[in-house]
Nucleic acid binder design. Structure first.
Length: 567
RNA sequence: GACUCGGUAGCUCAGCAGGAUAGAGCAACGGCCUUCUAAGCCGUCGGUCGGGGGUUCGAAUCCCUUCCGAGUCGCCA
């Protein structure tokens, strides 16, 4: 509502100023930093500059224009403060407008910006035969949440888990397995054992680099379907995926496709041929490259031995997705360290003459660091996500035993709180920032955390209970005190927040907003008694807090968190 | 070395299409449970917005420069 008022007011005033001074003037209509100054603010310095009139005169003109606005029924006061014109809203009229908007909406916050558009999101994408680490959590929860947010905005979303189930790493693992592996150990504890082999390989390669060459040979034969290697590969893939599914179940994450890199194995010749036909391919030091000029290093398409590389597979995947889903945008939720790769990918697509290179977006995120350095599987330093999730659930159960020992289904709720805490902790900060791994922070349940949001929703549920709410007997006067008014204003921002989260491809925008909403509610809660004698007052208050709960729950759902009624 | 991203309170971070006294949470300290869940609320303490220049009526926000951290830079993904 306020966004609408601001936008229209801006146009209205710009138009009238234009008529008056016959000069094009652009003004800013914003939210003042300090709410005491008002609800809407218009700095007039830019107007002074273009029309070259004294500031007080311009301020007066703008004040008159605001007062004459179509929206003046929403204004209770128009003040001039130095170079600003500040507007105070009429709390009753504004409250009524916001509440009505909620009442008339099927799904509050929804926006039709995405109608008819398809968006493909590539996320999670763990590497087979490697543990699902805290590093993969980021891609998984960011991608999942973005998918939910896009769906809320009426996009059609295709969720793809592009499994890292191919590549030279398999040459390495198979080499190590054949020389040092033990079938029983592998079957007993698949991923752990395969990681050991992978780490061992890298240790050995440091002393004897010739085994790198052997691994490459094995991979090449795997690509050419050597049955012995294919069989091993299938086995490794199967046992790994089984373990990943456990984690996805815990996180409540689902995908439309699990086609990984191997799926594109037979789709790459076509790419190489097309690049060749378009005269983009160049032989260089025995390998085939696409020269990308001065701006980027060349893209390596084919190795000296003829086997393919990451970017070749990504190209094949991209074209497959374009043909299959006809997307309007494709998002790759992949870490910062692959920035160059995606820049090169876009550049190659551009050179191939496809205009939709513009629709490729690398949704980069910060690395999970340990002691200020990137975590690396090669060095065997890895923290398994499942351990962290279990730890958080355990701690959450301890909390419940301390705070609310009589609670039913304690274990189940503890899991929902613990896992949601981990998810929220990951999403609350802007995705591209690096984060230092810190279990203590991740399982902290006090302050700006997942449990804080859940707790706030639970408090509301506890009041709402099974009270009936009559939407027709609302007295808007109960929404005018400061505590209520902050809630009304924040409720009003929900849709805008979702659009911002979408525009930035960052769930943190939503996460921060939910914290603000919850915080305003908790202040309200400490000040206002809801279950009062007066039925109109009680009803009005119940309705207001039910809206707050609706947004909290909807927002948490979009972030991929669990909604609970008691804790 | 080149390129990219970051540097805001002791710690974790918002704010950055320029706007009015720079905001939260954690930690520390002090209050608030005979009233709807105290995983909460209220308050105190805490900042040369890395340093230096510049553009502007106005800079944490834009430009230049410098220092610090991270990532990437041809046969891994």
């Amino acid at each position: 509502m306020i966004e609408l008022i601001k936008n229209k007011l801006k146009l209205e005033i710009e138009e009238k100023l234009h008529a008056k001074f016959s000069e094009k003037i652009s003004i800013v209509v914003e939210k003042p930093k300090n709410p005491k100054l008002g609800d809407i603010s218009i700095p007039v310095f830019s107007v002074v500059k273009t029309v070259r009139r004294p500031l007080p005169e311009v301020v007066d003109i703008v004040v008159e224009l605001v007062k004459a606005s179509k929206y003046q029924k929403y204004f209770s006061e128009v003040k001039k403060v130095s170079g600003f014109v500040n507007i105070v809203l009429n709390r009753i009229e504004f409250g009524k407008a916001v509440i009505n908007e909620f009442s008339n909406s099927e799904d509050f916050g929804r926006n039709d910006i995405g109608v008819g558009k398809t968006i493909v999101i590539d996320y999670s994408s763990p590497n087979i035969a490697k543990p699902f680490s805290v590093g993969h959590l980021r891609s998984t929860v960011i991608g999942h949440s973005l998918g939910n947010i896009f769906e809320k905005l009426n996009y059609k979303v295709v969720r793809i888990n592009h499994l890292g189930d191919f590549g030279t790493q398999f040459g390495k693992i198979i080499y190590a397995y054949l020389n040092y592996g033990d079938i029983e150990k592998v079957n007993k504890n698949p991923i752990d054992e395969l990681v050991k082999l992978y780490v061992k390989f890298h240790k050995l390669a440091k002393e004897d680099s010739s085994i790198e060459e052997k691994a490459r040979e094995i991979f090449k034969e795997l690509e050419q379907k050597n049955p012995k290697y294919v069989k091993l590969w299938e086995h490794f893939r199967e046992v790994s995926l089984k373990q990943y599914m456990k984690v996805y179940d815990m996180l409540n994450v689902k995908f439309d496709s699990y086609d990984g890199e191997a799926f594109y194995n037979d789709k790459m010749d076509k790419i190489v041929k097309e690049l060749h036909d378009k005269d983009l391919l160049k032989k260089d030091q025995g390998a085939m490259i696409v020269d990308l000029g001065d701006e980027f290093p060349p893209a390596l398409i084919q190795k000296r031995d003829g086997s393919t590389l990451y970017i070749t597979r990504d190209l094949a995947a991209l074209f497959y997705r374009k043909n299959t889903y006809d997307f309007d945008e494709v998002l790759y939720v992949v870490g910062n360290e692959q920035k160059l790769h995606f820049a090169q990918l876009k550049e190659v697509v551009k050179k191939m003459g496809y205009d939709y290179y513009k629709d490729i977006h690398h949704i980069n995120f910060g690395l999970v660091m340990q002691n200020g350095k990137k975590m690396s599987t090669r060095e065997g330093k890895i923290i398994k996500l499942i351990d962290v999730l279990n730890e958080a659930s355990k701690l959450s159960l301890e909390y419940i035993n301390e705070k609310n020992p009589q609670l039913e289904n304690k274990e189940e709720i503890a899991k929902k709180v613990g896992i949601s805490a981990i998810i929220f902790n990951d999403l609350k900060n802007y995705r591209a920032n690096d984060i230092e791994f810190n279990l203590k922070d991740m399982v902290n349940f006090v302050g700006q955390t997942g449990p804080y949001l859940q707790y706030t929703s639970v408090r509301i549920s506890s009041i709402l209970h099974d009270n009936q709410i009559d939407e027709d007997s609302i007295d808007y006067n109960y929404y005018t005190n400061d505590y209520s008014y902050e809630l009304i204003k924040t409720i009003d921002e929900y849709e805008e927040v979702l659009l911002k989260a979408k525009a930035d491809y960052s769930p943190s925008v939503l996460a921060k907003y939910l914290l603000t909403l919850a915080s305003y509610f908790n202040s309200y809660y400490s000040q206002e008694k809801v279950m009062v004698e007066d039925l109109i007052e009680r009803n009005s208050k119940l309705y207001l807090i039910s809206i707050v709960r609706y947004i909290l729950d909807d927002g948490m759902r979009l972030l991929g968190m669990q909604i609970i009624k008691k804790m």
